[in-house]
């Protein structure tokens, strides 16, 4: 497991049923591209988050494949529909097999 990985997600606390909300996610991760070399000229092995998914009550919102060209601390912004009250689940998949997840509840007014 890579060190210091911390997911951060911004989701409104409430929404009207059927409303479109904007979700911003960021996870602190060095996203080592596998292109860089250390001081001795050895290639630093690739270590990135290769996939991100967001689901709401079991329904998929977005599924992203990330490549080494994504910046350090991958940031993603997208929009989702909120049909009912429930929970967003965000999952990040690391190259080393680790899975980081976080969830946010949202209420319907």
């Amino acid at each position: 497991m890579a060190k210091g990985v911390k997911p951060r997600v911004k989701v409104p606390k409430t929404a009207a049923a059927g409303e479109t909300i904007t979700i911003k996610t960021l996870i602190s991760h060095k996203m080592e591209s596998g292109q860089r070399k250390d001081d001795d000229g050895n290639v630093i092995p690739r270590s990135i988050i290769n996939r991100f998914t967001c689901d709401f009550n079991g329904e998929n919102v977005i599924d992203v494949v990330l490549e080494p060209a994504i910046s350090t601390n991958p940031y993603l912004e997208f929009e989702a529909v909120v049909p009912e009250a429930g929970e967003f689940v965000f999952t990040w998949y690391d190259d080393d097999g680790s899975v980081y997840d976080t969830s946010k509840k949202i209420a319907v007014e």
Partner: peptide
Amino acid sequence: VATFKFGKLAASRAASTRIR
């Protein structure tokens, strides 16, 4: 760079990110 797949609850087929 990335591939975005939009699911049933995606409100818009849009996304933003930061790339190298």
